[in-house]
Design a protein around this nucleic acid. Structure first.
Length: 339
DNA sequence: AACGACCGCAACCGCGTCGTA
DNA sequence: ATACGACGCGGTTGCGGTCGT
C-alpha cells in the first residue's frame, strides 16, 4: 500500500553520522555540488540512504548554517512567521537563511511553544473579563470567522509581497533585508560559516580527549581564525592517527583543497559554498507558498497565537530596531485586530 | 554519588509534490 | 495522460546530556 522505502534497509546505516562520513559527504558535494542525492551513496561508498545524505547536508553540513542560540530578533521573526505561515518550517526558514527548517522546528517545539503558552496563559488571565480581543474571537460565527480570516490572509499576503519587493529594491527600511544582509555579502559569512561547520565536525573528530574546550553548542561560534588554526595531521596534532584518518577517509585532493593552510573555503576553490539568492529569498516567486487557501482551519487555528501580550513583547524590540516595525506591523497589525 | 526525570537536538519516517519519460 | 522516481517537507522518535532529588 505504502510507498516502498527510499532505500533497501539492508546494509543501510542509520543513526548519528560519524565525522568520517561527514567529510566524505562534504568532499563529494564539494566536487559535484548538492543534488542527485540518489547517486551520492553509491558514488561515495557511504552506507547511507540518499535521504539521509541530503538531510545531513541540509541540516548540518551545508555552508551558511548558523548554530547556537537564537537571537531575540530571530525568535520574533519565527513567531511572526509562524503566526503568518503556520508550521511551514521550510518557508519560515527561507526568511532566516542561516537557520535550517529543522532547527527552527526544534526551537519552536522546545522553546517558543512553551514561551507562547506562558504568554497565552498570562494573556488569558489578564483578559478574563472577556472584553479583549482574544476572547472576542469566539464571538465570531464560523462563517464570519472564516471570511475575516481569509480577508486578513489576503492582506497579509499583499503586505508580505510588498515587503519583499521593497527588499528587492534594497530598501534599508526593510527588516528582512536587514536580517539577511549578512548573508548576501559574498564570500564572507557564508564561507566563514561553512568553515565553521567543517571545523565543528573536525573538532568532534579530534576530540579524542574528552576535555574538549567547548562541550556544548557554543562550539558553533568557532571563528574563522580558529578554523584556520586547525592543523590537520601536522605538528600540533597530538594523535598520530588523526592525520592518517583524514588521508584515508578523504578522497583525493580533498584535504589539500579544503584544508591546506590559507586556502580553505575561498570562493575560488569552493564554488558551491555560495549562498544563492534563491536560498535567501526563495519565496519571492511565492513557490513556497505564502498561500493559505485551502489550508485547514484547524491547522491555522492551532498555529495562531493570541497576540495581545505577545504583541507587546514583540513590539518591545521595535524601539531598538525600528526597521523591524514594518514587518511586524505587517504580520500583526491587521490580524491583531480581531484577536 | 547514584538515580530518575526532563530537555534539546539530530535523525528517521511517511507522505506530498514535482519532473520526466 | 499517467506512471514512476527523486526530492522536499513536517511530524515524530531516540539518544545523549543536564538537572534535580
Amino acid at each position: 500500500m505504502g510507498r516502498p522505502p527510499c532505500c533497501d534497509k539492508i546494509g543501510v546505516k542509520k543513526g548519528p553520522w560519524t565525522p568520517e562520513e561527514d567529510i566524505i559527504l562534504v568532499s563529494y558535494i564539494q566536487q559535484h555540488g548538492p543534488g542527485n542525492w540518489r547517486a551520492v551513496p553509491s558514488n561515495t561508498g557511504l552506507l547511507r540512504c540518499s535521504k539521509s545524505c541530503r538531510l545531513r547536508w541540509t541540516n548540518y553540513l551545508r555552508p551558511g548554517i548558523k548554530r547556537g542560540n537564537f537571537t531575540e530578533h530571530e525568535e520574533k521573526m519565527i513567531i511572526h512567521l509562524q503566526a503568518l505561515l503556520g508550521n511551514r518550517w521550510a518557508a519560515i526558514a527561507s526568511y532566516l537563511p542561516q537557520r535550517t527548517d529543522n532547527d527552527i522546528k526544534n526551537y519552536w517545539n522546545t522553546h517558543l511553544r512553551k514561551k507562547l503558552k506562558k504568554l497565552q496563559g498570562s494573556d488569558e488571565s489578564s483578559t478574563q473579563e472577556g472584553t479583549t480581543s482574544s476572547s472576542s474571537q469566539s464571538n465570531f460565527s464560523k462563517g464570519q470567522w472564516e471570511r475575516r480570516l481569509q480577508t486578513d490572509i489576503d492582506k497579509a499576503k499583499k503586505a508580505l509581497c510588498e515587503a519583499l519587493s521593497l527588499d528587492k529594491s534594497d530598501s534599508p527600511a526593510n527588516p528582512i533585508n536587514l536580517t539577511t544582509a549578512q548573508q548576501t555579502v559574498p564570500g564572507s559569512s557564508s564561507y566563514a560559516s561553512s568553515a565553521e561547520n567543517i571545523s565543528r565536525l573536525l573538532q568532534n573528530w579530534m576530540k579524542n580527549s574528552p576535555k574538549s574546550s567547548q562541550s556544548n553548542s557554543e562550539t558553533t561560534t568557532t571563528t574563522q581564525s580558529s578554523f584556520n588554526n586547525l592543523s590537520i595531521g601536522s605538528g600540533s596534532s597530538s594523535s598520530p592517527s588523526e592525520g592518517t584518518i583524514i588521508s584515508a577517509a578523504t578522497p583525493e585532493g580533498f584535504d589539500s583543497q579544503l584544508f591546506s593552510e590559507g586556502n580553505d573555503f575561498t570562493p575560488e576553490n569552493v564554488g558551491i559554498f555560495q549562498v544563492e539568492s534563491k536560498q535567501i529569498f526563495p519565496n519571492l516567486n511565492s513557490e513556497n507558498g505564502i498561500l493559505f487557501q485551502g489550508e485547514s482551519k484547524a491547522s491555522l487555528e492551532e498555529s495562531q497565537v493570541p497576540l495581545t501580550l505577545l504583541e507587546k513583547w514583540l513590539f518591545d524590540d521595535a524601539i531598538n530596531a525600528p526597521s523591524q516595525e514594518e514587518f511586524m506591523g505587517m504580520a500583526l497589525g491587521e490580524s491583531a485586530d480581531y484577536f
